[in-house]
């Protein structure tokens, strides 16, 4: 399963695994949206520690989660971002938009 979730109160941690490209993105986005709608969290942590590869499809995934959390008046934090994914996200300025835990 590419997504694993952990809920503590209104805080949701979502671990994403595998290769995030256009081929994988649609299923990941649907799954992430479903989890957010079910949990309606105040804070979302996206743990990317298991992401082996990411292209701009991953930017769209993170931005969609961000927009949804803004609508819920909540926050998003990225966690355990691998080097390759970090380079892609930084090229899009995502590091200036979201808090980022090492």
């Amino acid at each position: 399963m590419p997504i694993a979730c952990e809920e503590t109160g209104r805080a949701l941690t979502v671990r994403v695994e595998g290769e995030i490209d256009h081929h994988a993105a649609r299923q990941l986005m649907e799954e992430l949206s479903r989890r957010l709608d079910a949990a309606l969290p105040k804070s979302l942590t996206l743990d990317l520690g298991g992401v082996a590869f990411m292209d701009s499809s991953g930017i769209a995934l993170v931005l969609r989660a961000y927009r949804r959390m803004v609508a819920l008046r909540g926050s998003v934090t990225l966690q355990n971002v691998p080097d390759q994914a970090a380079k892609v996200l930084k090229a899009a300025g995502v590091d200036r938009l979201l808090p980022w835990n090492e």
Binding site: D55, S56, S57, I59, A60, R64, A91, A92
Partner: peptide, 11 residues
């Protein structure tokens, strides 16, 4: 559409 970031060429 919504599932694309528009960042392909930039990357």
């Amino acid at each position: 559409g919504a599932d694309r970031s528009g960042m392909g060429f930039t990357i």
